[in-house]
Design a protein around this nucleic acid. Structure first.
Ligand SMILES: NC(=O)c1ccc[n+]([C@@H]2O[C@H](COP(=O)([O-])OP(=O)(O)OC[C@H]3O[C@@H](n4cnc5c(N)ncnc54)[C@H](O)[C@@H]3O)[C@@H](O)[C@H]2O)c1
Ligand SMILES: NC(=O)c1ccc[n+]([C@@H]2O[C@H](COP(=O)([O-])OP(=O)(O)OC[C@H]3O[C@@H](n4cnc5c(N)ncnc54)[C@H](O)[C@@H]3O)[C@@H](O)[C@H]2O)c1
Lengths: 253, 253
DNA sequence: ATGTCTTTGTGAACGCGTGCACAAAGATGG
DNA sequence: CCATCTTTGTGCACGCGTTCACAAAGACAT
């Protein structure tokens, strides 16, 4: 560990908390908007409001990146855009493949938000032979048989899975074997991957179920506060039964 | 108004942690699969593996719902499916509207995972007059002008926003004013809503940026390990439980 | 240079989530 | 009925993330 400076990791700090990393894109988006409006500097209070977070949290987040602010003034917008972009690895181009070009996969391929952030759709891959060669969003769909070759030739390290759930693990295994080390999974399945591979999942169904939980809780509290019956404003028409008073259909043995 | 949220001493264990709520759909999915295979009971260990979580965490999660397991045996699959469904509010039907029927909105409308979980697409809404009346996924698209009427007549409390970012806040405001109290937002914007309204966001761009960060970090560590040993990344000094943990960032005065 | 004013950067306290480890509970077998 | 074995339910400790509150740092005016 013979190093000139043992401490002071500052700008090269590897210890950025995961929660902070997840917020950096949020700050970056707000800063980009300010940059487009040619705003030179911004205070933590203003930027926090734009990003929808607490200002103390924002300052602490930035403190992990280093001291890029000026006391009494705020942060230099352009400089901060660059620093966060660099930290997130957006100063380089990331080729991405999308596997499973159905409803969702096609929508993703058509999404403009990719390129604007340094991500480039390098290839679209589907198992359906009828789709091979057919262009989606201007990119010809390629067959799954060539998956390994495509990954290798394009130097792809990020893969997006938009296949049915049943095929997801298999696709995932092939992607990983071919060299992909980051996966964004839209299929409602738990993917198992070796160490060193990152998986993030986007599950619409889960999000809706979480909303439903809170919705039910709100309705329950409202009914409770009102007095009794669940005849509140937003009771689904068809549902005759309320969230309460149901009887378990099955009892454990 | 009516921000009285503090006096909730939990009449009957109504204090389920948010992190637990977010995992319940995961358990439910795994349990549903077991149910379809007619598996009668499952241990916390097996179910945890299927859901991709720690078994102790799963047991603690279930303990918030009550004691539904049998020691020495495990959990009754059917009963647990029912209990979690009830807790999440999935025993009732939730009408949902999707606003913004473009690439993504159309994909969502076509998504079968909605109905299978108790969510019903009550209406599709778009601002483009050319789309009005045109059926998407068998449901005719309606114009934004009728948004309030649609929400009201269908008793909708959950709305999905899939419009461009610039229109999202405006759409959100109208949804909320019309009575929607839960919103799933796909547009890359921070939505501001009054108290009592829940917003969850799905941001593909953010997910990719988080993956890119880790990807870059992996590449950096690799290069570092290959040749340049500038600094020791992390030296696990004591495998035991050292109370000191991370090195506090020392400030050179 | 000195004082005032603004805003950052961070120490410290707190709360939440996680995972270990084990006693209690119940099943199962003799 | 008792012994043993399996698995739950949870007390506890630890670490991470959030938030407060404030001293320090710099800008700016005089
Ligand atoms: N559509 C949505 O809005 C939505 C929302 C949330 C989650 N999802 C999930 O995303 C996934 C895709 O949804 P979708 O609506 O696009 O389905 P889809 O059926 O329209 O598309 C699936 C595509 O994957 C292809 N495919 C199947 N097996 C493959 C394989 N082994 N290798 C490569 N390609 C393969 C099919 O040919 C098809 O083109 C599903 O898992 C779904 O649950 C979709
Ligand atoms: N396509 C994707 O994969 C993807 C991924 C992540 C995020 N997003 C986000 O989702 C949103 C939609 O993306 P898209 O690709 O479907 O865009 P799109 O342009 O294809 O569709 C947008 C639709 O919204 C409608 N619209 C516009 N203003 C409206 C208003 N005020 N009220 C009602 N409808 C209105 C338009 O008529 C259009 O049909 C965007 O914010 C995008 O950033 C999309």
């Amino acid at each position: 560990m013979a190093t000139g400076r043992t401490h002071r990791p500052a700008t090269r700090s590897r210890g950025i908390p995961e929660a902070t990393v997840a917020r950096l894109p949020l700050y970056l988006r707000a800063l980009t908007a300010l940059s487009e409006r040619s705003v030179p500097t911004v205070s933590s209070e203003e930027l926090a409001a734009a990003a929808g977070v607490n200002s103390a949290k924002l300052r602490k987040d930035f403190s992990y990146l280093g001291s890029y602010g000026t006391r009494g003034v705020g942060y230099d917008v352009e400089y901060l855009v660059y620093q966060i972009s660099r930290e997130l690895g957006l100063t380089q181009d990331w080729p991405v493949v999308i596997v499973g070009i159905g409803n969702l996969g096609a929508a993703l391929a058509n999404y403009g938000g990719f390129a604007s952030r340094g991500f480039r759709v390098a290839a679209l891959i589907d198992a359906d032979p009828a789709m091979a060669g057919k262009p989606v969003a201007g990119i010809p769909v390629q067959h799954t048989d060539d998956l390994e070759k495509i990954i290798d030739e394009n130097g792809v390290s990020i893969g997006v899975i938009a296949t049915p759930a049943g095929a997801a693990q298999q696709v995932c295994d092939r992607l990983v074997a071919a060299g992909v080390t980051s996966i964004l999974n839209f299929a409602p399945t738990v993917l198992s991957v070796p160490d060193g591979v990152d998986v993030r999942k986007v599950d619409l169904s889960i999000e809706l179920q979480i909303l439903a939980f809170h919705e039910q809780r709100k309705a329950g509290e409202e009914a409770e506060a009102a007095g009794e019956s669940e005849a509140v404003i937003q009771t689904p028409k068809e549902s005759g039964k309320g969230p309460d008073g149901d009887v378990p259909a099955v009892m454990p043995a």
